[in-house]
Amino acid sequence: MTQVSVTPESFEMVFYDAAVIGEVVAEVAERLGVEENITVEIDEGSPLGRSKITSYDPIELWVDGGAFENTKRPRQFGNARSRDTIGRLLLRILDRRSGRFNETPADDELDLMQFAAWDVHCVGRLERLGIGGQRQRRLYQFRNRHGFTDVADAAFDQLWDSSELSWTEIERISEDCRAA
């Protein structure tokens, strides 16, 4: 059973509940087959939506408070958005551990195109697991990095619909858009 620790334990600037966050993270982890402890640090003072993996083993995640926010109700916890954020982070961890991503640069060395391509591959898989989605949103993000072209759209479809691509394959699909 996944143990999730959330910091801070109580919030002053937003209406979040650490226990609820822990439950959501645990549920997503269970869906993805992650059975180890997870630490989540939340910067409640930031309405931005950034998130990152600060440690792969043990699993430690950091997010801007905005990454868990309900965009319809500012300062309120957003269940769907949080699941999407956590799902993407955990899937990247699993990808790196899978052996298919041994050539992947460190997170802070990925350029925007590479990150976007990997993100699409993650979110497509998450959608099929019932976590997140928003395909058109992800397509728009991908197009911003890879161009508003038929080639880019075809690349997006391939990344989204595929199950277990390797980093080499993802990088090639992304590079092909650059060349087009």
């Binding site: 002053e12 600037m13 937003v14 930031s46 309405p47 931005l48 408070g65 109700r73 500012p74 300062r75």
Partner: peptide, 24 residues
């Protein structure tokens, strides 16, 4: 869903973005 002007201005996180902390 409507957010009132008072709610928007009452968001304490705004100071970080408005210039209280130039890093963000």
């Amino acid at each position: 869903i409507r957010q009132t002007t008072e709610q928007r201005l009452g968001d304490p996180r705004g100071a970080r973005i408005a210039g209280g902390n130039s890093g963000t």
